[in-house]
């Protein structure tokens, strides 16, 4: 059980320098995503075949792709899409995983049922499960979201369950219970403070992984479908033009790497 005061989570002030840098990177990307869609006069699929693979200019700040579509629009849409998916996947899987984790640590029947379920889910690598579920409805954002959340809640469950088990058997919780405090109080004072830092770390890694998974699926053509903009999909689409327009290909690659890097930094120390 971690009683380390510095890792009590919460609050930007308590973050380490690298965590703050990570947060800044993510905020900049978020501002870019919002600002890009707001500033750019072009729509997502508006083609201009007379101006394909243009370098950055005053008309097209980030240049154009192979169909003459504005890269600024497409990049900001794609970054926005990644962030949205990351966010809802983190929220969903964290809520499910934490609730079930605490519940399983407290009750034995739930624990054994969950144990078998988790064991089976862990028998296949996450990406393979997501790939197969994505195959049922190709290009569906909803299915992607459900599949990724299904894979990700397990991690929260395992960590939260292990920590909660420790806390439940700790002298501190035992003594609180003996003094007559109720279940909610025990959760508030003992369990939550112990799991909160780990949940934060897991959430940051989870956000990165969700974004990565969506990009991976896009990259093998079974994720989000054209003409929508998605970072992995854009990478394959633009790959053939690497020599004519390296700046265009570099954009989605850089965006993915920055997002993942930002989340990794934000997560702080690996658990």
């Amino acid at each position: 059980m971690s009683l380390d005061r510095s890792s009590r989570g919460g609050g930007i002030m308590k973050m380490t320098l690298s965590q703050k840098i990570g947060l800044v990177i993510l905020l900049i990307l978020l501002v870019f995503a919002f600002g890009g869609t707001w500033v750019s006069p072009y729509s997502l699929s508006q083609q201009d075949l007379n101006a394909i693979l243009q370098p950055p200019s005053t008309r097209h700040w980030l240049g154009t792709d192979q169909f003459g579509r504005s890269m600024l629009t497409r990049m900001s849409e794609a970054v926005m899409l990644s962030f949205s998916l990351g966010l809802i996947c983190v929220i969903t899987s964290a809520i499910i995983g934490v609730t079930l984790g605490v519940w399983a640590a407290w009750g034995e029947t739930v624990d054994s049922i969950m144990g078998v379920l988790v064991n089976i889910l862990l028998a296949l690598p996450g990406l393979v499960i997501v790939l197969m579920l994505a195959a049922i409805a190709p290009g569906s954002f909803l299915v992607l979201y459900l599949a990724i959340s299904l894979v990700q809640w397990v991690e929260y469950f395992r960590v939260v369950r292990a920590i909660t088990k420790n806390v439940i058997h700790s002298p501190a919780r035992q003594s609180t219970k003996m003094m007559g405090f109720g279940v909610w109080y025990q959760f508030k004072r003992h369990i939550w403070p112990s799991i909160a830092p780990s949940i934060f770390t897991l959430a940051a890694f989870g956000g990165a992984n969700a974004i990565l998974t969506m990009a991976s699926l896009g990259f093998v053509y079974v994720g989000i479908q054209p003409p929508l903009a998605e970072l992995g999909l854009m990478t394959v689409e633009l790959f053939p033009y690497y020599s004519e327009a390296p700046w265009v290909l570099a954009q989605p690659l850089l965006a993915i790497a920055l997002m993942v890097f930002g989340f990794h930094l934000l997560a702080g120390k690996r658990t």
Partner: peptide, 28 residues
């Protein structure tokens, strides 16, 4: 009452929640 049968622990810090001040614990 049940809460009048109590225990003192070997390792004092492990018997308290570090998430809030001792005063807060006493108030609770």
């Amino acid at each position: 009452k049940p809460h009048q049968w109590l225990k003192l622990y070997q390792d004092p810090p492990s018997a308290f929640s570090a998430s809030v001040s001792l005063g807060q614990l006493l108030n609770d």
